[in-house]
C-alpha cells in the first residue's frame, strides 16, 4: 500500500488543481505547487544523518513521495496550458478525455522529473 501511495501522490494534487476555473491561474498555480513541493523535497533532512563516509542516506522514499506530488502539479500546469492552446474543445467527452489523460500523466510525471533532476541537473 505504501508503495502505491508513493506512485499516486500526484493524482490528488492534479485533481484539485485541475478544478481551477481560470486556465492562466491554473498554469500559475500548477507550476507554483510543483516548484514548492520540489523545494520542500530538497529541504528534507537525510534519513540517518551524514557521518563521514558512511550511511549519509539521502532522503529515503519520502523523497519520491514528494517528487510524485510535484508531478501532479506539473501535470495540472500542462492540463491548463492545453486549455489555453485549444480553448475550443467543446464536447463534454473531449474534455473528460483530456482530464483523464492528464490524470494518467500525473502518475509517471513525478518519476520523470526525478530522473531528469538526478541524471541531467545534478
Amino acid at each position: 500500500m505504501d508503495l502505491i501511495a508513493l506512485f499516486l501522490a500526484g493524482v490528488p494534487v492534479f485533481a484539485v488543481l485541475a478544478l481551477v476555473p481560470q486556465a492562466r491561474a491554473g498554469v500559475f498555480l500548477g507550476l507554483a505547487a510543483a516548484a514548492a513541493i520540489w523545494a520542500a523535497h530538497q529541504m528534507l533532512p537525510p534519513v540517518t544523518g551524514s557521518d563521514a563516509a558512511g550511511n549519509a542516506m539521502a532522503k529515503g522514499f519520502r523523497a519520491f513521495l514528494y517528487a510524485s506530488a510535484a508531478g501532479g502539479g506539473a501535470a495540472a500546469c500542462l492540463f491548463h496550458l492545453t486549455r489555453i492552446a485549444w480553448p475550443a474543445v467543446g464536447s463534454r467527452g473531449a474534455r473528460i478525455f483530456r482530464f483523464v489523460f492528464f490524470l494518467a500523466v500525473s502518475i509517471p510525471l513525478g518519476a520523470a522529473l526525478l530522473v531528469f533532476w538526478e541524471e541531467v541537473l545534478r
Binding site: 534519513v47 563516509a53 558512511g54 549519509a56 542516506m57 539521502a58 532522503k59 529515503g60 523523497a63
Partner: peptide
C-alpha cells in the same frame, strides 16, 4: 531497496 546514498555523489573523502 535502500535509499539513495549521497556518498556516491562526486566528492572527496579525506
Amino acid at each position: 531497496i535502500p535509499p539513495v546514498s549521497r556518498n556516491d555523489d562526486p566528492q572527496s573523502f579525506a
